[in-house]
């Protein structure tokens, strides 16, 4: 391997010639999806113009401003670094698990199966449903007796071409949203309504598979990613807790032992069928070095096994 500048071009060309599976690019589908987008833009623009001029009013249509989202889950400096404000209940059998991605890059609660995604979001309290400019709220069957709407760019298509949004009001006046795409059903509405009816709104620390007696005082939690199933490897889940301290980044990764296809980096331990790895990127925080480095964090950790009933919301402390 040369990696000199002349050789790199040749090596990249060689890499691009490496054996490949049959191409899945579908030009007809690109045309079809592209046409649909063009059509929606034109219809959206036309509807906005008609509503502004008072000629047409269909459901609740907003022509300016955007709905105000509120946090659906968050990182916490408390004993549990992952706190959810809304949680899924019943989910179809095709769903492999519920994932949380919270912190500096946004907060998401997602459930997924083969290709499909269900994303839970919350909006600020309001008398009317949150509706983006150019979109329309079409009445849906009430969720737990409360108003619900399909939000769509196409008033003739409640499920918005398979990229479906259901919003319903919850008891405190906020609005919950279930966004679903690539659902296996031709009409996903009954499934979405059933999922929505079982969503719980309320603060809930999410049980996690480890306990750490303490972390250095200057450790500031920045993100938590709890993927189910794991994004890499074949594990049922993967938990990543990101801390920033003293100009460095410390990451804790917990996964079922042997489930990761990428060799673990950093300092690792295995216990109760789980593996915990601690990595430091950038500068080693002085507070971490002072207690003995990543290995000291490993010594302070207890892994709680695969049985989720044994997991804890007292993760730190």
């Amino acid at each position: 391997m040369t990696t000199n500048e002349n050789g790199l071009g040749a090596e990249l060309r060689e890499l691009a010639r490496s054996p490949a599976p049959p191409m899945r690019v579908d030009i007809a589908r690109a045309r079809e999806v592209g046409r649909r987008r063009l059509w929606r833009r034109r219809i959206g623009g036309l509807l906005s113009a008609l509503v502004v001029s008072g000629t047409l009013a269909v459901g609740w249509t907003v022509v300016s401003g955007g709905p105000e989202r509120v946090t659906v889950a968050t990182v916490s400096e408390g004993t549990d670094p992952l706190v959810a404000y809304a949680s899924f209940g019943w989910l179809p059998d095709t769903v492999a698990g519920v994932s949380y991605v919270v912190g500096a890059h946004g907060d998401q609660v997602m459930a997924g199966g083969p290709g499909m995604r269900l994303i839970l979001s919350m909006y600020a309290p309001d008398d009317e449903p949150p509706v983006e400019s150019g979109h329309t709220a079409l009445s849906a069957q009430p969720v737990n007796g409360r108003r619900a709407y399909w939000i769509t760019a196409d008033p003739a298509d409640p499920v918005n071409g398979g990229d479906a949004y259901l919003r319903w009001q919850v008891p405190d006046g906020r609005w919950a949203e279930l966004h679903a795409y690539d659902m296996p059903e031709a009409d996903p509405r009954p499934t979405m309504l059933r999922i929505a009816a079982d969503v719980t709104v309320g603060t809930r620390p999410v049980p996690l598979p480890l306990h750490i007696s303490s972390v250095p005082a200057d450790f500031e939690i920045t993100e938590v990613h709890f993927w189910r199933p794991a994004m890499q490897g074949d594990g049922a889940w993967e938990l990543m807790i990101f801390y920033a301290a003293d100009g460095g980044r410390v990451t804790l990764v917990v996964s079922p032992e042997g489930s990761r296809t990428v060799s673990p980096r950093g300092s690792c331990m295995a216990e109760a069928g789980l593996e915990l790895c601690v990595t430091v990127e950038g500068k080693m925080p002085e507070s971490l070095a002072a207690i003995g480095g990543p290995e000291a964090l490993l010594r302070r950790a207890t892994l709680l096994g695969m049985d989720e009933r044994e997991w804890t919301t007292r993760v730190i402390g």
């Binding site: 899945r24 589908r29 690109a30 045309r31 592209g34 987008r37």
Partner: peptide
């Protein structure tokens, strides 16, 4: 890569 190309050509069409 196929997914990236699919997204790209859909944008090209639009």
């Amino acid at each position: 890569a196929d997914d990236l190309v699919q997204t790209t050509i859909t944008r090209l069409y639009v």
